[in-house]
């Protein structure tokens, strides 16, 4: 089976690891070979969390620079930072709601011009799908569901060899019972944002 390499980048607290877990479970249910790795040493202390997911015939669990087929970014400046993981034919899916690093918040660093983010990514890679996943999560009823909004968006692009049903079932299996409905709604919002777009 063809190999698809996905990088997910987020800021600590955005639920990247849960999103990876959902995708992993969905792949298991779909009988698709999957390997994943994560670097999250200091996530609780505001650092970047990066996950690599490799679907199909491969044994590596990490992705080298220039070899990710899909980049799913939870935050626009982190998406830009992770562009080095992409090749010219990669697809990029990104949340556009900024979460500036603390250094920027206190005036000791400059956040990249948001208006430039989309044109830049478009110039470098094959396809860009952007949305404000944070807004959609809020609309779904919980800002913490931003991770699942982005999974909905990812599902709509059909970039992964996983069906919508596999992902939805994995959400039911993975998230806490009380949050299943909100998350399914968040998933749908993410999906719609791409299909409309």
């Amino acid at each position: 089976m063809k190999t698809t390499r996905l990088i997910i980048v987020a800021v600590g607290g955005q639920g990247n690891l849960l999103a990876s877990k959902i995708l992993g479970e969905a792949a298991m249910a779909a009988n698709i070979r999957v390997g994943m790795s994560e670097i999250h040493g200091m996530a609780q202390r505001g650092g970047v969390v990066e996950s690599a997911l490799i679907f199909g015939d491969a044994d590596s669990t990490i992705i080298s620079d220039g070899e990710a087929d899909i980049l799913l970014g939870f935050e626009p400046s982190e998406t830009l930072r992770a562009l080095k993981k992409c090749h010219s034919r990669s697809w990029v899916i990104t949340n556009m709601e900024p979460l500036p690093p603390f250094t920027v918040n206190i005036g000791k660093g400059e956040y990249p011009d948001l208006k430039q983010v989309e044109p830049l990514i478009k110039k470098k890679t094959d396809r860009l799908f952007s949305l404000n996943a944070t807004d959609l999560a809020r609309q779904a009823g919980n800002i913490l569901s931003v991770n699942v909004v982005l999974l909905g968006a990812l599902s709509a692009t059909k970039a992964l060899p996983l069906t919508k049903e596999h992902m939805q079932n994995a959400i039911r299996k993975t998230v806490k019972k009380a949050f299943i409905d909100i998350n399914l709604k968040a998933f749908e919002f993410g999906e719609k944002a791409i299909n409309k777009g």
Partner: peptide, 11 residues
């Protein structure tokens, strides 16, 4: 030509 992206050191 990517702009400089502010670092996100753990704190």
């Amino acid at each position: 030509d990517l702009p400089e992206i502010p670092s996100r050191p753990p704190n």
